[in-house]
Amino acid sequence: MAIVQNWMPPSRENWELICRIWQYFPVITTIQWILDWYPQGKTSTDSRFNIPGKIAWATMEMAGFITLLYIMFTLPSELGIKELPWGNWTMAGCFTIHYTYRAILSPLFLNPSMSPIHPLVWTLAFLFQVFNSTSIGGWLAGYGPTTVHEWAGRFWIMEIGLVIWAWGLLGNMFHDDDLREIRRATDRKQRKEAEKLGKPPESIHKVYMIPKNGLFQYVLYAHYLCEWIEWAGFWIVGGWNCHPARAFLVNEIATMLPRALQGKRWYIKKFGKEKVGNRKAVIPGVL
């Protein structure tokens, strides 16, 4: 059942239009190279319009896999496709696993706290998810490969891609948890002190330290790097001609790279250049 006729799920003409527009997303991110204002996370600002961090993150990120799954379950019947090949569902599964972790487990169950997010950031992130999942979902649900024969002969390449995707996801989880442990340790310490003094513990949503484990020894945004590796593997699974997966990787790098460089400036300002040391922003030994 269509939510918006010819748009959700999209007709081929509208899907191709969305894909063309989506390829120009890096142009929008150029403003991040000019402005350091980014009201989210460690650089969040006080605003009466702010959305609580956990709620904002969950709602803006869930739009991705919900949209993709909706398209996967509705578009094929509209196109007269009885069954999608297993390769399509494999990629849809990878996408859904990642965003189940990122949109549900991470903010709602694993993160001890999250800084508030400005509605502008929430809106842009929500639109990112909708455009991206519509682009990928349309390709997987009928506008890309529709028979198992189109995946034939690529099994070993797909296996390599899946291994890269899995290692990227595990690396992302590992480094995310290292960041969480900073706040968990602070929370444990503050609770003990508060208990001794008979006072309620202080908020930890603005507690930051320089992470040091894993790839954090070399870069400040190791979780970004691992996510790029993850989606590079996803593109390999889909193949060189899977332009939605390619656009996803390019657009992630386009928006996360300036954010990482901005974050490095923030770390240097807060902790000093000596404590940051030789760590790069996101690519070891390079950038």
Rank of each mutant, 00 (worst) to 15 (best):
M72Q: 05
T147H: 03
A194T: 01
D46E: 12
T43G: 11
W231Y: 13
I31F: 12
N213H: 13
A281P: 08
W266D: 13
T134Y: 02
A2Q: 14
A125I: 08
I204A: 04
D36V: 05
E150W: 01
A103N: 05
V237R: 02
R259Q: 13
A125P: 03
D177A: 01
E159Y: 13
Y101Q: 10
T67S: 14
S113Y: 12
F128C: 08
V276T: 07
I71R: 00
G138S: 04
I3G: 03
F271S: 14
V121P: 11
P200N: 08
W7C: 06
Y24P: 01
L75A: 01
M60C: 11
G285D: 00
S115I: 09
M114C: 08
R265H: 12
H118L: 03
G198M: 06
W89Y: 04
Y221T: 00
W15K: 12
F131N: 08
P201D: 03
G87E: 01
R183M: 09
F131P: 13
T255V: 13
W151T: 02
P112W: 01
H98S: 03
P52D: 10
P10A: 05
V130Q: 09
T255L: 15
P52A: 08
M209V: 12
K199F: 02
S47D: 07
W7M: 12
G239D: 08
W165P: 04
C19G: 12
W139C: 10
N241D: 15
K269A: 15
E181V: 05
P200K: 08
N50A: 09
G263L: 05
A63N: 10
C242P: 06
E230T: 07
M60N: 07
